[in-house]
């Protein structure tokens, strides 16, 4: 059964430039771009056309202008948890997984590295060079408590000033619960919905406790990924991280860009977006909506 996991939409607010390029805009919102991933298991589903997508904006069916299988560069921020609980082989596996991902990026992709324990640190700003990223990863050492919520919030705000022809992604890794943030979970979810970044979360579960049994993935991290239009993967052990980072990158390479000009809906406020498939099968990941600031 087809499942809508999340959604990714970017709202282009009308401006003179946009208006000149796109004559279809109306009442402030020109075009909504929805970044959609369609997977069949681990494989991307290719060859879909716009007629095979159904988009509801606040429950109102929309006419899709285009559906293209994107092949645009990635602007990827890696946000890694380096708190005390990552000591030992956990940090070593994390570094290896992140390095593998960096090496698998295409030449035109950009990446930056940020870490958090209690403090958030931007280790390296966006770059197309790989060796500084690898070097920065090699220098990571774990210490301190976990300000996950504040770090993700800061990561979302640091999105590149001009996205251009690339897809901005925040890939968050964490192994624990927040212990030191200012922001509550509900505040972060709300802020994530307002961001245009695609957000994936990889979680490393605690070691199995013989008293309580196998730990379960965090409901909150699943909700966070959903709010950011991405997926949440949980690793049972640190050695699984390499595989999950690879899956995340695979997912990022399999995206359709749907565009439509909203009609029949109010311009301002939250827009609930649902994307489904018609006459096709696949697992859809897309942002659950977008927010238009009242003028």
């Amino acid at each position: 059964m087809m499942r809508i996991i999340a959604a990714s939409a970017v709202v282009l607010i009308a401006s003179v430039t946009v208006a000149a390029q796109r004559p279809t805009f109306r009442s402030g919102v020109a075009v909504v771009r929805i970044d959609v991933s369609v997977m069949n298991g681990l494989s991307p589903v290719a060859g879909l056309t716009r007629d095979q997508f159904v988009v509801l904006d606040n429950g109102v069916p929309q006419t899709i202008d285009s559906a293209t299988l994107e092949n645009v560069p990635l602007t990827l921020t890696l946000l890694l948890d380096t708190s005390e609980s990552m000591r030992g082989d956990r940090i070593a596996h994390l570094i290896e997984a992140a390095k593998t991902l960096i090496k698998a990026l295409h030449p035109q992709d950009e990446a930056s590295l940020a870490t958090f324990s209690e403090p958030f640190l931007l280790r390296l700003p966006m770059t197309r060079e790989r060796s500084p990223l690898i070097d920065a990863l090699d220098r990571l050492t774990p210490a301190g408590s976990t300000s996950l919520n504040d770090a993700v919030f800061l990561g979302l705000q640091l999105k590149p000033a001009t996205v251009g022809d690339s897809t901005s992604v925040l890939l968050v890794f964490s192994d624990g619960h927040d212990t030191a943030s200012w922001l509550r979970n509900d505040q972060l979810i709300d802020a994530t919905k307002r961001s245009s970044l695609l957000l994936h979360v990889i979680e490393l579960l605690p070691s199995i406790d013989t008293a309580t049994g196998s730990p379960r993935p965090s409901e909150f991290l699943a909700s966070l990924a959903k709010a950011g239009g991405g997926r949440h993967w949980a690793a049972q052990k640190a050695s699984d991280l390499n595989d999950l980072f690879g899956k995340a990158l695979n997912e990022l390479r399999a995206r359709y860009l749907l565009t439509y000009s909203p009609s029949g809906v109010d311009r301002d406020g939250w827009h609930d977006v649902k994307v489904t498939l018609r006459n096709a099968r696949g697992d859809i990941t897309a942002r659950p909506g977008y927010f238009v600031q009242p003028q």
Binding site: P119, F120, S147, D150, F153, L154, Q157, S181, W182, L183, Q187, A191
Partner: peptide, 10 residues
């Protein structure tokens, strides 16, 4: 202060 920056930015 990271906390205040986050609070104010939010």
């Amino acid at each position: 202060s990271q906390l205040v920056v986050v609070a104010l930015a939010h």
